[in-house]
Computed example of a mutant assay.
Amino acid sequence: MKTSGNTILITGGGSGIGRELARRWHDLGNTVIVAGRTLSAVEETAEGFAHMHALQLDVASEEDVARFVGELLDRFPALNVLINNAGIMRYEDITSARDLADAEATIETNLLGPIRLIDGLLDHLKGQADAAIINVTSGLAFVPMPKAATYSATKAAMHSYTVSLRVKLAGAVEVIELAPPAVQTELTPGQSQREGYMPLDAFIDETMKPFEAGETPPEVLTEMVLFLRNAEAEGRFDEALAMTSRF
């Protein structure tokens, strides 16, 4: 993926990983559109950045995704990169019958949202030079956190979907998976201060290195996430699962 001269859409751009990726990509010489459910949050992300634009989008709404795609392509016909970053993480007790609202919202946001957005933009992206799709998954795609069972399942599904997409779009659109470890953001309450989680700035610095190096790998991984990413291949799955189960 080229590092400058792109027009990039980043969902979930109102905070955390999405906000900092947007600013870093902007500073490399790209036009960046940040989208999020709360307009004031993405406007705050874009404030002071000359080539960054804020748009409202609820990725959990099929109707809003359709509206957004039309507006986006009308205003930014040079769009050639989609970064699916928006996501929610809810802790659940799955040991007995419960209200499934959290599980349903997680699936709508983390799985159906990016699939719908890819579907809406794919024909356009296939006609663009240097087109790319980056799907942000998680180390929990490879070893689940039982306390966040649906979140883990949606990230595993997005990993699988990304692999399939990469095969089917080979030669037309570059498909990249970005799988963060536990990062100090407000994905869950108090997480930005949680000891043992990777500082956000350090995560962004390490994540951007392979992009800036030239040949972007199919999976962009920090050193910290490899404990989960490679657990099964290295015969450590039970050990890794025991660790994620302690949370």
Rank of each mutant, 00 (worst) to 15 (best):
M208Q: 10
A172S: 14
L187W: 10
M198R: 05
V225A: 11
A103T: 12
T38D: 14
T31I: 01
L121H: 08
S40N: 07
D99I: 13
R19F: 05
V32C: 06
A97D: 11
I133N: 04
T222M: 12
E174Y: 14
E215F: 10
Y151K: 02
D201H: 14
F76G: 08
T11W: 03
A240W: 06
N84L: 09
D130L: 09
I33N: 04
Y151N: 05
R37P: 11
E212R: 06
V167D: 15
A132W: 01
L100V: 11
E212A: 07
G139I: 06
G5E: 01
H53M: 02
L221W: 06
R236H: 13
A157E: 00
V173I: 01
A60Y: 05
E44N: 09
I33M: 01
L79K: 02
G171V: 08
V32W: 01
R194K: 15
P218G: 08
P217K: 05
F237K: 00
E212W: 04
K2T: 14
Y197C: 09
D205Q: 15
D64Q: 09
E104I: 13
A242R: 08
L165A: 06
L178R: 03
L241C: 06
E44S: 10
H124A: 08
A22H: 03
L57F: 07
L73S: 04
M243N: 14
E104Y: 11
A182H: 15
E232C: 09
R23I: 09
I17M: 10
F68N: 01
H159R: 12
L100A: 11
H124C: 04
L21T: 09
S61W: 05
G120T: 07
G12L: 01
V136D: 05
I134R: 03
M52W: 05
E108F: 15
P217A: 06
E206K: 15
L79S: 00
T150F: 05
K155S: 12
E71T: 13
T207Y: 10
Q193P: 09
L55E: 00
H53Q: 03
N80W: 04
E215W: 10
G87F: 03
I204L: 04
E177Q: 09
F211A: 11
H26F: 04
V65T: 07
R19L: 05
G139T: 06
L200R: 01
